[in-house]
Design a protein around this nucleic acid. Structure first.
Length: 267
DNA sequence: ATTAGACCCTGATCGC
DNA sequence: TGCGATCAGGGTCTAA
């Protein structure tokens, strides 16, 4: 989102081309027409959704899914496979939405709903922002009380906290020294107190590093993110724990990989 | 009410 | 080199 600001804020979309039949969901009615000749007047984010508000009062809602990226390209760079939507600005450059797996989402929020808590079905049940003041040890304690699901699975649930993904959950649990398999309701008060700051630290470090580029992701200017160089545990199966040298372990929880140090993260 | 699993889709990589 | 199995920054739907 930060990378899109210099490219799209206060710019007029002179042409919008849709090259895919649909992404995760079908495009809304008259998608390109509703964006064309509109000016982007603000750019915001909620959870993992990017929100571009237009001078028409409508808001373009975007989600990158797993493999999506929004990247600046020149006016006549060749179209690549999986360039699904092309936004052309009055400055003569383009921002392309490229997404091989098409798990991304685009929709338009009708006029008058922007800022509304019920502005979109997809945003309805999303929990507090992890970097905001609502994410505290007390909040976590209250929400996790009595839960038997693993802390890893719970932290990935966007209804509990917005915006944490698979990488950052593993990294945050390592920083807080919490075992990813521990039931949410059975985390000690001391570890719980460490968790909220650990989440904030990981996300802030990742944002500073421009995000994580594993394979697909690049920033809007085309630069790779490099938080991957700071991973303590993610993707480091059998490599030494940075704290105690014990080999990092990989397990599957709810169908997703989790990485942790079996010695540092015991409970 | 909670929780695990299937599924959406394409491409890269790994083991044989 | 070729081929199938497995895995990947996410989220939603279904069925236990």
């Amino acid at each position: 989102m930060r990378g899109l600001v210099p490219l799209l804020l206060n710019r007029t979309l002179v042409k919008v081309t849709v090259r895919a039949k649909q992404l995760r969901f079908p495009f809304p009615a008259n998608f390109a027409e509703r964006l064309t000749w509109r000016t982007v007047i603000s750019i915001n984010r909620r959870a993992k959704y990017i929100l571009l508000t237009l001078d028409s009062g409508e808001t373009l809602l975007l989600h990158l899914g797993m493999s999506g990226r929004l990247v600046k390209t020149g006016h006549d760079d060749p179209i690549k496979a999986h360039d699904h939507v092309i936004f052309e600005t009055d400055r003569g450059d383009q921002v392309r939405f490229h997404d091989p797996r098409r798990f991304g989402i685009m929709d338009i929020v009708p006029k008058g709903k922007a800022g509304d808590t019920a502005m979109h079905k997809l945003l309805d049940n999303i929990g507090p922002e992890p970097l905001g003041p609502e994410l505290t040890a007390t909040y976590l304690q209250q929400k996790l009380a009595g839960k038997s699901a693993s802390i890893k699975t719970l932290l990935l649930d966007q209804r509990l906290i917005a915006g944490l993904g698979n990488i950052y959950v593993s990294e945050a649990l390592f920083r807080a020294r919490i075992n990813p398999e521990a039931p949410g309701g059975k985390i000690s008060a001391q570890k719980m107190a460490a968790l909220a700051p650990a989440i904030k630290e990981v996300l802030e470090a990742a944002i500073s590093a421009g995000g994580t580029s594993m394979r697909d992701y690049v920033q809007a200017d085309g630069q790779m993110g490099n938080f991957q160089s700071q991973f303590a545990v993610y993707g480091r199966t059998d490599k030494p724990c940075p704290a105690c040298q014990t080999p990092i372990r990989r397990i599957i929880q709810a169908g997703r990989s989790t990485f942790y140090c079996p010695k540092c993260q015991k409970a």
